[in-house]
Nucleic acid binder design. Structure first.
Lengths: 111, 111
DNA sequence: TCACAATATTCCTTGACAGGAATATTCCAT
DNA sequence: ATGGAATATTCCTGTCAAGGAATATTGTGA
C-alpha cells in the first residue's frame, strides 16, 4: 500500500500506469508514447515492478509490461473503509469538541 | 491526484490520515497517538493541508484537523476506470502480440 | 557465431524532503 | 497586558530518488 503510493507519486510513473491501462506495452512503446528516453523508462518500470504494480513478460527481443490487478484491488479495498464513513465521520466535529470540553472539566479521566 | 499520492506516500502522513478517519483531532492528540513530536506533526499536517487532504478548524487554543472528502472521492473516481477493466484489459496480451506481429510484417503501417 | 536491436544497469550530480533542535507565533485565561 | 499552552516556522543536516550519459546485458535473426 505504501509502495503503491510511492510508485504513483512520481508523475512519469503515474503516466506509465495510465498508459498501461489501455493494455500491455513494450518498453520502447512506453518510451515513445510518453516522450521519455529508454533508460529512464526502464528504471521507472523497474520501480513499478518492484512495487508490484506491473509485471513483465518476455516476448522475443522485447519485454512487455502490463498492469497487475492486485494493488489496485488492494487500493480499492482501502478506499472502501473511507467510502463508508466520509459523510458520517469526517465532519463530526461536535463529538470531538464535547470530548475536549469533558477533558477540560476533569483532565484525569482519560476515558 | 498527484499531490494526493505524494502526501500519502510518507508513512507518518498515511498514519495520520488513518487516524483522522476515526474523526477530527487536534495537533497534540495526533502527536501523542502516533508517538510523533509536535513540530513534525505540524509539518506533516501542513503538507496534508496543502494537498487538500485535510482542513483546519481553530477552536480556542487548538487547531482541529479533519479529513476532507474531496480527494478521496477523486481517488475513488480514478479507481473506477481501473475497476471497469481490470479483468478485461490488463491481461489481454494477445491483442498486443498480434499488433506487434502486424507491425513486424509492414513497419510503415502506423495503424 | 556475429552483429544488432531492445532493454537493463551503473555512475554521477543535483534537488527535494524528512527529522532534530531551537525559536517564533498565536491566542486564550487571568 | 501578560504568562503560558498549543501550534507553526526556521535552520541545519543527511538521505534518497530522479535525470543524463555512457555502458553492459540479453536475446534474436541471419
Amino acid at each position: 500500500m505504501n509502495s503503491t503510493f510511492s510508485a504513483l507519486a512520481e508523475p512519469n510513473r503515474f503516466n506509465i500506469v495510465e498508459l498501461l491501462r489501455d493494455g500491455p506495452l513494450s518498453v520502447g512503446d512506453v518510451a515513445v508514447q510518453l516522450g521519455l528516453n529508454q533508460p529512464q523508462t526502464s528504471k521507472h518500470l523497474r520501480v513499478l515492478c518492484d512495487a508490484g504494480l506491473v509485471e513483465v513478460h518476455a516476448v522475443a527481443n522485447r519485454r512487455i509490461y502490463k498492469l497487475r490487478a492486485a494493488p489496485f484491488q488492494e487500493l480499492d479495498a482501502w478506499m472502501e473503509s473511507y467510502r463508508r464513513i466520509w459523510e458520517e465521520r469526517f465532519d463530526r466535529l461536535d463529538d470531538y469538541l464535547q470530548e475536549l470540553q469533558r477533558k477540560e472539566a476533569n483532565p484525569d479521566n482519560k476515558q
